[in-house]
């Protein structure tokens, strides 16, 4: 599941922020971590942005095939 990957990325990002916060890395390492972190952040954001909010109603399912139609939300 790609969401697992997302969580991995987020975890990595967290670790990077923690390391940056500790201030114990040298400046080269710091810059490297920052770049990596920004890349991860961008990827995470993209993964989030790629998720679509869409509500469908399942008409039929045959094996792995799922036929859907627009779900008229009873709102």
């Amino acid at each position: 599941m790609s969401s697992e990957k997302f969580e991995d990325k987020l975890k990595k990002l967290e670790v990077i922020v923690e390391r940056l916060e500790s201030g114990e890395v040298d400046i080269e390492e710091n810059l490297k971590l920052f770049q990596e972190g920004m890349k991860l952040g961008k990827e995470c954001r993209k993964m989030l942005d790629d998720i679509e909010s869409k509500v469908s109603r399942v008409l039929s399912a045959d094996g792995d095939e799922v036929k859907t139609e627009q779900f008229d939300e009873p709102l």
Partner: peptide, 27 residues
């Protein structure tokens, strides 16, 4: 999950940028 993830990612990015800038300013 989604709401937190958006918030976390943005917070992390912001925090990272702050830390990096601080580090650079210090140096």
């Amino acid at each position: 999950g989604y709401v937190n993830a958006v918030r976390d990612v943005e917070n992390h990015k912001k925090r990272m940028a702050e830390l990096m800038l601080n580090r650079l300013y210090q140096n």
